[in-house]
Amino acid sequence: MDTTSHPGGQRRPGGAAAGRDLGDRATVEATETFVAHRKLLFTVAYEMLGSAADADDVLQETWLRWVAVDAAHVEDHRAYLVRITTRQALNRLRSMKRRREAYVGSWLPEPLLTTADVAADVELSESVSMALMLVLETLTPTERAVFVLREAFGIGYDEIAAAVDKTPAAVHQIAHRARRHVEARRPRRSVTARQAEAAVEAFRHALETRDLRGLLDVLAPDVVAISDGGGIKQATPRPIFGADKVARFIVGGLTKHNVTVTVEPTTVNGGPALALHVDGELDGVVAMHVEDTHITGIYYVRNPQKLTYIESETPLTLR
């Protein structure tokens, strides 16, 4: 009697065609389930990693493991997929921590061109904002996984414990520690979407006209500007603090290089942002954080390796 392997790695008796049909059907059904939850899984991986490219790699690894599982014995497909994704993302996050120690200059999350529904969802847009993602970088890999799963996705402690290989009691402690750490550092979100858009529009106008006074008017006194060139494009090696220094740096840079800059409004990571083109070529994306109608954070991603996900919208979800 012939035997034919199927994606679960087991061997079933029967003719070659029968075995192939069973394997193909199982793969198709597993793939359909995976696709149904793909948006959620990508959001989990991206919030854990801050890198869309790495999140896509994690999803590929998740799919390969999922199609090798006998789904008939899995009670909750969504929970099982989240568990696989979390474990793969944790493994990758630990290796990324070492890579980022050798990163040239400041590191910023990979920006995503996001859909209108992401911007309209306050909880989702905050969870993927550049400002919060930078705070999450200060957590350990396990703390970040627990915080993301609990705070952003509302996943239960028992389920998180299974995903991170900890006891529920340990997860409780980790969640409390991570929450306290983040709350002490997370930026306040005290403006409406319309107020944030107005502040970014004022920044855009001042940038295009190289208006120092206009920039000073829209920047908070304690604004911080961070740029990420990844060693490929020129960027400030360290953050710049203070409205006067930030404004003069921006205007001085534009004047010094005597370039033609066009600025296009866009939506990045659920918030208003700007795409900068220098002499007709995309130079980078500027995401901003706004508090009390003033810009408190400017995040300029110039590293071309991080700009591939602003060419088309990336759907995200917390559910």
Results as ranks from 00 to 15, higher is better:
Asp2Ile: 01
Gly8Thr: 13
Gly9Arg: 04
Arg11Trp: 06
Ala16Gly: 10
Ala18Asp: 15
Glu32Leu: 15
Thr33Phe: 15
Val35Tyr: 12
Val35Ile: 15
Lys39Gly: 05
Ala45Trp: 06
Ala52Ile: 09
Ala53Pro: 12
Asp57Met: 08
Leu64His: 08
Trp66Ala: 07
Val67His: 09
Ala68Phe: 08
Ala71Ile: 10
Ala72Met: 05
His73Ile: 08
Val74Cys: 12
Asp76Ser: 07
His77Cys: 07
Tyr80Cys: 05
Leu81Lys: 01
Arg87Glu: 10
Leu90Trp: 04
Leu90Met: 02
Leu90Phe: 01
Leu93Lys: 00
Arg94Thr: 11
Arg94His: 10
Lys97Trp: 10
Ala102Tyr: 12
Ala102His: 14
Val104Lys: 07
Val104Trp: 11
Gly105Arg: 04
Ser106Tyr: 02
Trp107Gly: 00
Asp117Gln: 01
Ala119Lys: 04
Asp121Thr: 05
Leu124Gly: 10
Glu126His: 06
Met130Phe: 14
Met130Val: 05
Ala131His: 07
Ala131Gln: 12
Met133Ile: 03
Thr138Lys: 03
Val146Asn: 11
Arg150Ser: 14
Ala152Gln: 03
Phe153Lys: 05
Ile155Leu: 10
Ala161Asp: 07
Val164Ala: 07
Asp165Met: 07
Lys166Gly: 04
Lys166Val: 09
Lys166Thr: 05
Lys166Phe: 15
Thr167Tyr: 13
Pro168His: 03
Ala169Ser: 13
Arg177Val: 14
Arg177His: 12
Arg179Ala: 15
Arg179Phe: 15
Arg180Pro: 14
Arg185Ser: 07
Arg185Trp: 08
Val191Leu: 03
Ala193His: 13
Ala193Glu: 15
Ala193Tyr: 15
Ala196Pro: 12
Ala196Leu: 09
Ala196Gln: 11
Ala199Asn: 06
Ala199Trp: 04
Glu201Leu: 13
Ala202Thr: 10
Leu207Ser: 01
Asp211Val: 11
Leu216Arg: 03
Leu219Ser: 02
Ala220Asn: 14
Ala220Pro: 13
Ala225Phe: 15
Ala225Gln: 15
Ala225Val: 11
Ser227Asn: 00
Gly229Leu: 11
Ala243Asp: 13
Lys245Trp: 06
Lys245Arg: 04
Ile250Met: 10
Leu254Trp: 13
Asn258Leu: 15
Asn258Arg: 08
Val261Arg: 06
Thr262Met: 11
Val263Leu: 12
Glu264Cys: 01
Thr267Tyr: 14
Gly270Lys: 02
Ala273Glu: 11
Leu274Asp: 07
Val278Ala: 10
Gly280Leu: 13
Leu282Ala: 04
Asp292Cys: 09
Arg302Leu: 13
Pro304Gly: 08
Gln305Cys: 09
Glu311Ala: 03
Glu311Val: 10
Glu313Asp: 11
Leu318Cys: 09
